[in-house]
Simulated scan of single mutants.
Amino acid sequence: MIPVFDGHNDFLLRLMRDPANRDKIWNPGTGQGHMDLPRMRAGGFAGGFFAIYIPSPAAHDDAEYEAIMDAPPYDLPLPELIGADAAQPVAMAMAGHLLWLERTGELSICRSVADIRDAMAAGRIAAIMHMEGAEAIGEDLDALHVWHAAGLRSLGPVWSRPTVFGHGVPFRFPGDPDTGDGLTEAGKRLVRECNQLKIMIDLSHLNEKGFDDIAAISDAPLVATHSNAHAVTRSTRNLTDRQLRVIRDSDGMVGLNYATIFLREDGRKSTFAGWDPVLRHLDHLLGILGEDRLGLGSDFDGATMPAGIGDVRGQQALLEALAAHGFGEALVRKIAHENWLALLQRTWGG
């Protein structure tokens, strides 16, 4: 199997929602959701970005969301801002689950590319502590340094809601990412501080003006861990060709999001058979980014998957589909894991 290093998963959210059963969820696994240790092993999952994410209070139940997002057009309102006081206990609980995973001996929290390579060589899952939305950090940025000391090495300033640092895009189809104001002054300070600490900045979920502000301020490669091509699927969450060129010119990277809602040209949430939507996005991204700036960013345990992938075991089927599409073995390996490791080396340094 070709090892896969993945740009985004929400496995910690699953553990937080059922902490009493986390042993069973992790290993041997319950067969629910998209990930557990046996299925990671079966799918060649070598590691990736494990997201700490603060859920918003639900405006609809799951069935209502499913119906709305499977019948475009739709335009869901942005959730309210969540303050640091409310977010920090939730973020701490999720970080605690990640540290528990490390204590099982089957996973390592990695702070350098050398750590990732060592974990992969030893057969442990190589995990990067990532924040999807910076709600757990206050405007004084003191908590950023606490989280960095705890192992945080990747951060997205927003999820799809506002923070004190900037503005996320709403879930809207059709739509584009130009949906509001740019970074706040606190957001600009956050970017500079992340650069100083060598914390990777994730552009996924950020609106276009915020994207441009980070591009103007940051001295690091620009990265979207789990985003697709707006030219193929006109979702607010996808990147325009201009944004892709900005990422390319920074020597950055994009991880392909497997979520059906960002892959299907019609914007629907329902799953689909076959590989055509996936391949259309990959071809488009590859044509702009080039072979060294494209990877995978699954969104496992946070989205509906194409039928051909299903769960983490389906990643090898995806790689086989890339090979059948004409991607050579060297390119498949780059997309599977080599480009992520090279990007992190450029971002984190030695």
Rank of each mutant, 00 (worst) to 15 (best):
D23E: 14
I217H: 05
G180W: 01
D140R: 02
R293C: 08
L344H: 03
I309T: 01
P72D: 08
R17K: 14
P57N: 04
R313H: 01
L141M: 06
D202P: 11
G349S: 02
K188G: 06
E139A: 13
L331P: 03
A273G: 14
T260C: 15
M69V: 10
F171K: 13
H337Y: 14
A231E: 06
L203S: 09
A273I: 14
G308D: 02
S108E: 12
Y53I: 14
P73K: 03
R268I: 15
D176T: 03
L13I: 11
V169N: 04
T30A: 03
G267N: 01
F262C: 05
W100V: 09
F5R: 04
R264D: 08
A95N: 15
E66M: 13
A114R: 12
G255W: 07
P19Y: 11
R242W: 07
N9P: 04
E66A: 15
G96T: 07
G350D: 15
M40L: 00
D301V: 00
D75K: 11
D283N: 08
A273H: 14
A143P: 12
P157D: 11
H145K: 13
A71D: 14
G7Y: 11
V146W: 13
M94E: 13
M131C: 08
D178R: 15
D115A: 04
P157N: 09
H34Y: 00
D118R: 15
F300P: 08
L152E: 07
D299Y: 04
V246E: 06
A95Y: 15
H167N: 15
N228K: 02
A87I: 12
S218C: 05
H230K: 03
L331T: 12
G180Q: 08
T240E: 04
L101S: 00
E132H: 04
V232H: 02
L141A: 09
L282R: 00
G175E: 05
V254N: 11
D202K: 08
L183G: 10
G349Q: 00
V90T: 14
I2W: 12
V191E: 01
H97L: 10
A186C: 00
F272Q: 09
S218E: 00
I25A: 02
M305E: 06
K188H: 06
A42H: 10
V158Q: 01
P221E: 05
G133K: 06
P170M: 10
R103W: 06
